[in-house]
Nucleic acid binder design. Structure first.
Lengths: 242, 242
DNA sequence: CGTCTGATTGAACTGATTCAACGGATGTGG
DNA sequence: CCACATCCGTTGAATCAGTTCAATCAGACG
């Protein structure tokens, strides 16, 4: 319970409200690098990430793998439970992850009783779709340097929106191989490109910790336009930092 | 009115039902290569493509452009009207496009009066998101040859689901430049790759007409797994052809 | 310590890009 | 009905961003 409350303070106002409306949560834990659910399976509950990072990924028969999205605390997964028959992608923990499982009937009750929450969930899905499109632009059109700068910027802004940054720094548990799989590059090239960004003073990234000395500069490199995150809806009051 | 009815017969059962439930449709027309709406604007109505092809795209300040999705007859766009403040991408016609505009209040009535339709719209959005993820896998991991084979296969299957194929053939109005922008390649390389696919007898593509002599073979090249299209929900009865 | 995971480096290689030119089909206006 | 323009597809040659393979290094941990 203490854990849960602690988590609340890290989530947006909407998330807190949604959680508060739930009587009893099934709090679950996943170990780093473990799959939560695999492509082809049928999801049985909506998940809400309380702490830690997770990702969606898809893979090809020959082993190539593409990370198609990251989840940070406050993010929902599998809102499709009712609608789609089976998962078209997999979910995997990056770090140790604590998450709440919300059973379908509980979810239904929530949606019925609180229309604002149903709207907010839809908003969440639409923003996810928007991020997805931006990633496609990222991988399809940007250079390695721009891609990586973009990814780092996005994650920093998303973390800031749920108050998981401290000034210009944040925890950053991704390995270079993770970044590679998310950007469609090889980890070797990610390594060299990160070094380049470091050399230019655009980022500091060591020991699972990211510092962005000049966010505007990094955004410039990435041609980052934050509109796709739709931060103006919920959580604008969380935009300011420290 | 005749036009509309003609369109009906080309849409899935759900779409027909949804349309039938609407009293009067605002049928609109867009000329080829014209934008329907641009990034940053506020959409004012839901659109349903009745005939022709359109696309979503995003662009960068320096002109690079990524097509992030195609719309074929029966597809909805801008279901986000109520929720998101402004467009994070643009819509553009590929061919001449006929579409219906459904005003927000009309939409609301539809959703209230017919819960099944509201579900179907949500299903439609989730499938779109799934396609988006597959495209990211496509651009991030597949080779040029695989990418193009994958795109052609997807479009053929989607057209077949709305009965817009004849046997192993369909209209295919995309230029090589369109294919390039959708796959993150240059049009020069698309050209060479299409020639390769043609040489191997995997496709015939001339005069805006696509023939796939051996669909399984092309799917093999693309490592195509149709699960992401979630064709098992609505429209399974449309799967069989001719 | 030994082991493991993740970061780093070097050198050779290649899939795809770039640039620039040309060809063919279609349409249009005089 | 010709002259011209435009759009799209095609080709060649040079180049390059990113890959591949393989080895080494550094920190974490039992």
């Amino acid at each position: 319970m203490f854990l849960k409350l602690q988590a609340f303070t890290r989530l947006s106002s909407f998330d807190r409200e949604a959680l508060a409306a739930l009587g009893h949560l099934q709090t679950q834990e996943a170990q780093p690098r473990r799959d939560l659910i695999r492509e082809g399976e049928q999801p049985k509950a909506v998940r809400l990430i309380l702490s830690g990072w997770a990702c969606r990924y898809k893979d090809l028969p020959d082993g190539r793998r593409q990370i198609v999205g990251f989840f940070v605390p406050g993010d929902f997964c599998d809102l499709n439970v009712y609608i789609l028959k089976e998962m078209d992608h997999s979910l995997s923990a990056i770090t140790r992850v604590l998450y709440a499982e919300i059973a379908p009937d509980e979810m239904e009750r929530l949606i019925d009783e609180r229309p604002r929450i149903s709207q907010a969930l839809l908003w969440h899905e639409l923003v996810n779709a928007s991020i997805q499109r931006e990633w496609l632009l990222n991988v399809g059109q940007r250079s390695a340097r721009e891609r990586i700068a973009h990814l780092l910027t996005e994650l920093f802004l998303r973390l800031r929106a749920v108050r998981l940054t401290e000034g210009n720094a944040c925890d950053f548990p991704l390995t270079q191989a993770d970044i590679a799989e998310a950007t469609g590059l090889t980890s070797v090239h990610v390594n060299r490109t990160l070094q380049e960004l470091r050399r230019e003073g655009l980022i500091e990234l060591t020991q699972r910790r990211l510092i962005i000395p000049d966010l505007d500069a990094l955004m410039g490199v990435a041609m980052f336009n934050p509109n796709y995150l739709h931060l103006d809806h919920e959580g604008r009051h969380l935009d300011a930092n420290d």
